[in-house]
């Protein structure tokens, strides 16, 4: 079963940006991509060298990733809260929460 195994602050020089990398136990597939996009807008680039998707869930988060990769990049909206993060974690199958060891 897919679940979150790590949540990281991605490397970079912007500590203030609310960006996290979610690493899952299994790669993202199109079914998960469409599920995450419910209630938001999906941009999908299936013909790219590695198929990229972007999902914008207003007031919650914007996420992007590669179909076939287990890593999601998530930028939380300034109006998001702990509930948003928990809902995302559950949508990804549960597992590690932010601040826990993966």
């Amino acid at each position: 079963m897919r679940e979150v195994i790590a949540i990281r602050v991605p490397p970079g020089c912007l500590r203030s940006a609310p960006v996290r990398e979610y690493e899952l136990s299994e790669p993202v597939d199109e079914a998960l991509m469409h599920r995450l996009a419910e209630g938001g807008t999906l941009q999908y680039f299936p013909t790219f060298p590695r198929p990229l998707f972007r999902i914008d869930r207003p007031q919650e988060f914007c996420t992007q990733g590669i179909v076939g990769s287990p890593v999601l990049r998530v930028t939380f909206s300034p109006s998001s809260d702990a509930g948003t993060r928990e809902a995302l974690r559950l949508a990804l199958g549960g597992g590690t929460a932010e601040g826990e060891e993966g």
């Binding site: 991605p10 790219f48 590695r50 590669i66 990769s69 990049r73």
Partner: peptide, 8 residues
């Protein structure tokens, strides 16, 4: 991120 992960 998109340039690196999708296009290398």
């Amino acid at each position: 991120d998109a340039l690196l992960r999708s296009f290398d």
